[in-house]
Amino acid sequence: MQEVTLIVTHPVGLHARPAKELFQQARAFKSKITIQNLSRPETKELPVSPFNLLQIGVKHGHIIRLRAEGEDETEAIAALAALVQNDFGERTEAS
């Protein structure tokens, strides 16, 4: 099992396009991938899906933990962490 803890810096949080990107990238891996919003302690650890991302309400500045378990767990966590850290591909545009 691999995991990473990240701060979400995208202005809209994990909604709309960022949520779509995260879900689509996570789906491309064979590993089972889950997410937990540590900034909302009342929410559970859940598989990454559009509905679950809605349920855990990740806003700008929230801290999330991603976990992957499976044959490509290392690659999955690396790719998803990079996605979140680069503001879902929007950061490069500004620099």
Binding site: A19, K20, F23, P47, S49, P50, F51, N52, L54
Partner: peptide
């Protein structure tokens, strides 16, 4: 996106 959600 929600129309194809696994939970649904």
């Amino acid at each position: 996106m929600l129309a194809e959600d696994p939970t649904l």
